[in-house]
Simulated scan of single mutants.
Amino acid sequence: MEGSKRSHEQDAESASILSAKGHLQDVYTKHVQSSYTGAMKLIFSPTIRAKLAHKTPPVSEQQVRECFANREGKFLIDTRESNLTNPLTRWFIAETDFGVTLKVVFIPTEAGIVIKSAYAPNAEEIRIYHKYGHQGPI
């Protein structure tokens, strides 16, 4: 247990150092550090890959990984009735390594983090995240 805890701490520290802006773009190729599950695999379905590629501007899987690595606030839960899922859909706003701001929407599962969407947030989403995403523990 002690060695496992140390390994997670070392992984988090290494990821933090490597994900600094302007450095190594491929920090998290398959895993992200999550505040509630530890390292988890990001899952992009073929439909979501196509959806992200057709966004204006397009969003890459790498940009989503960078947002997870660079996240400073906590995950918020989408409580709108039309978006309710089991488990609940979560979202956050963060920047990529090159300063592109994205809203990332996902569902945590036992298999990994299922990405539902990622796009440039609107002013209201930014307002909500600044108000509620930076309160309390991450």
Rank of each mutant, 00 (worst) to 15 (best):
V27H: 04
T29D: 14
T29P: 15
T29V: 13
K30Q: 09
H31C: 05
V32N: 05
V32T: 04
Q33F: 12
S34M: 09
Y36E: 15
G38L: 03
M40D: 12
M40G: 06
M40K: 14
P46K: 11
I48L: 01
R49G: 02
R49W: 01
K51T: 02
L52D: 00
L52Q: 07
A53P: 00
K55I: 07
K55D: 10
T56W: 06
T56A: 15
P58C: 11
S60Q: 05
E61C: 11
Q62P: 04
Q62W: 06
Q63V: 09
Q63C: 04
Q63T: 02
R65D: 09
E66I: 01
F68G: 08
A69Q: 10
N70W: 02
E72P: 00
E72T: 09
E72G: 13
G73V: 08
G73H: 08
K74Y: 04
K74R: 14
K74I: 12
F75Y: 15
L76H: 00
L76E: 05
I77K: 11
I77S: 11
I77V: 13
D78C: 03
T79H: 02
T79P: 07
R80V: 00
E81W: 02
S82K: 14
N83L: 02
N83F: 03
N83S: 10
L84F: 02
L84T: 03
L84S: 01
L88F: 02
L88A: 12
L88C: 07
W91D: 00
I93L: 10
A94S: 15
A94V: 10
A94L: 13
A94I: 11
E95M: 10
E95D: 14
E95Q: 14
T96R: 13
F98C: 14
G99H: 12
V100E: 14
V100A: 15
T101P: 06
T101G: 03
K103M: 10
V105H: 02
F106Q: 07
T109E: 01
E110H: 13
A111L: 14
G112M: 05
G112Y: 01
I113L: 12
K116H: 05
K116C: 08
S117A: 12
A118N: 01
Y119R: 13
A120Q: 13
